[in-house]
Amino acid sequence: HHHHHGSGALAALHAEGPLAGLPVTRSDARVLIFNEWEERKKSDPWLRLDMSDKAIFRRYPHLR
């Protein structure tokens, strides 16, 4: 159930192989992290948004 927010940013994801479903670039990863943060913020208003490279690598090590 993907609803768009204002920016309408869509992340490019790997379609197949071992990385299927994972973001292709760091900016794609940022979109995913932001979208998930927006969702989680509803139940956790104090949740901090962390889109640093460090956060991205921790989450998606293949982007190193």
Rank of each mutant, 00 (worst) to 15 (best):
P18K: 07
M51I: 15
G6K: 14
I33D: 01
S27Q: 15
E36V: 03
T25R: 06
F34R: 09
N35I: 15
L22K: 06
P45A: 07
H3I: 12
I33S: 01
I56Q: 00
L49H: 02
L22T: 03
G17V: 02
A11Q: 04
A11L: 06
L22E: 05
A29Y: 00
S27T: 11
G6T: 13
L19S: 07
H3T: 11
S43W: 09
R64F: 09
H2Q: 10
H1F: 08
K41W: 08
R64L: 13
F34V: 06
E38C: 13
D28M: 04
A55F: 11
A15W: 08
L19R: 03
H1T: 12
R59Q: 10
R30H: 05
I56W: 01
R30G: 04
W37A: 02
A55K: 06
H2Y: 12
L19W: 06
A20G: 05
L22F: 05
E38M: 15
L13C: 07
R26L: 15
A15K: 13
K41I: 12
N35E: 10
K42F: 07
R40E: 08
D44A: 05
K42V: 10
R48K: 15
S43T: 14
H14F: 08
D50Y: 04
H62C: 01
E38V: 15
G8S: 10
R26T: 12
L19G: 02
F34M: 06
L13M: 07
A55L: 09
E16K: 08
N35Q: 15
L32I: 14
H14S: 02
K54E: 15
H3Y: 11
F57P: 01
A29F: 00
Y60V: 00
D44L: 06
E36S: 04
D28S: 05
P23D: 00
G6A: 12
L13H: 03
P45H: 07
G6H: 13
R58K: 15
G8I: 10
R26C: 09
D50F: 03
L32K: 03
A15I: 11
E38P: 02
M51W: 09
A9Y: 10
I33A: 03
G8P: 13
R64Q: 12
H5Q: 14
S27R: 14
G8W: 06
L13Q: 04
A20H: 11
L22A: 03
R26A: 12
E36Q: 06
L19H: 08
L49S: 01
V24Y: 03
P23C: 01
V31N: 07
L13K: 06
D44P: 05
E16R: 06
S52D: 04
Y60I: 00
D53E: 09
L10K: 15
Y60T: 00
L10P: 15
V24C: 10
V24S: 03
E38R: 15
R59S: 06
S7T: 13
S7V: 12
R40D: 07
A9E: 13
T25H: 06
